[in-house]
């Protein structure tokens, strides 16, 4: 269980990193905190001829209060978010989500940008960021672009990032103090990936109203628009949610349907009460 031979670069600017990626012609990979990538390299289930470690790029570690949104550099660690360094514009939701990812030692290295770019279907940040209506900033050799997180997450372990692009920042629109949120994560034990994750978010002031679930079983984060109306003004029961799960995801096993239904219902209930 040792990583294969590779080349290693640790540039200190985004431009330099992009240049190396371009040169790598698809065989170079960005290394952020490495908490998913390095285990996969050790297991030799992921490969990279070249690693481009973005840990030395100062600007990617910045947390910025940008007026109507908070801008998190891609290599801001989960632990910094857990410790409240983002400022609290989300009723404690960011700290809650961050603090329940894996373990502190992992959170000290693992980054929000790395989590989004890795696109593990069971990861927490994609669900939370879609729920909060966040956008990602992407830098490429041909300039930069911005995408909503739900468009950025394309599929299991697949994002909208091109081989020569880097995810540089996550911009989360500030919520009002009236924000109500719930983040339900059913897991086998502390620190484990969720078997089912559901987030419900409602901000009557901004109009943000989202219901999102994620897990390996459902192939990554999914918005449940069918339930978002119910979150605002309707009643929801298990049958309606089960129906929404089937209509959104397709047919799942009885166990999987049940745990996603329950997590979604609990999330919605918590926000509504």
């Amino acid at each position: 269980m040792k990583a294969p031979a590779l080349e290693f670069h640790r540039p200190d600017t985004v431009q330099a990193a992009l240049a190396i990626l371009a040169e790598g012609d698809g065989a170079a990979r960005v290394l952020a905190g490495g908490q998913s990538l390095v285990p996969m390299l050790n297991l030799r289930v992921a490969f990279a001829e070249t690693l481009v470690d973005i840990g030395a790029i100062q600007e990617l570690a910045a947390i910025e209060d940008a007026g109507n949104h908070v801008r998190l550099g891609a290599s801001v660690s989960h632990a910094r978010i857990e410790d409240g360094q983002t400022g609290d514009y989300f009723g404690g939701m960011l700290g809650h989500v961050a603090g329940n990812i894996a373990y502190r030692a992992i959170r000290n290295r693992g980054t929000i940008g790395g989590s989004l770019a890795h696109a593990d279907p069971a990861a927490d940040w994609p669900v939370a960021m879609i729920a909060l209506g966040a956008n990602v900033e992407i830098a490429g050799s041909n300039g930069s672009r911005k995408l909503p997180v739900d468009e950025f997450m394309v599929d299991v372990f697949t994002t909208a990032l091109q081989e020569d692009e880097i995810l540089t920042a996550i911009c989360i629109p500030k919520a009002s103090p009236k924000l109500r949120w719930s983040f339900q994560k059913m897991r086998k034990k502390a620190g484990a990936f969720g078997e089912a994750i559901a987030a419900a978010v409602h901000d009557p002031e901004s109009g943000l109203c989202r219901v999102v679930a994620g897990s390996s079983a459902i192939g990554g984060p999914q918005r449940f628009t069918l339930l978002e109306t119910a979150l605002q003004d309707g009643d929801v029961d298990d049958d309606a949610i089960r129906d929404a799960v089937t209509r959104t995801i397709g047919s799942l096993g009885r166990y999987e349907t049940q745990i996603h239904t329950v997590c979604l219902r609990r999330a919605i209930e918590e926000v509504r009460t």
Binding site: G34, Q35, D53
Partner: peptide
């Protein structure tokens, strides 16, 4: 401990520790 914070040394590349 890396800079006083606990980290997993098995999934931290040595070259990242400059």
């Amino acid at each position: 401990l890396m800079d006083g914070m606990p980290i997993r040394s098995c999934i931290t590349m040595a070259a990242s520790c400059d």
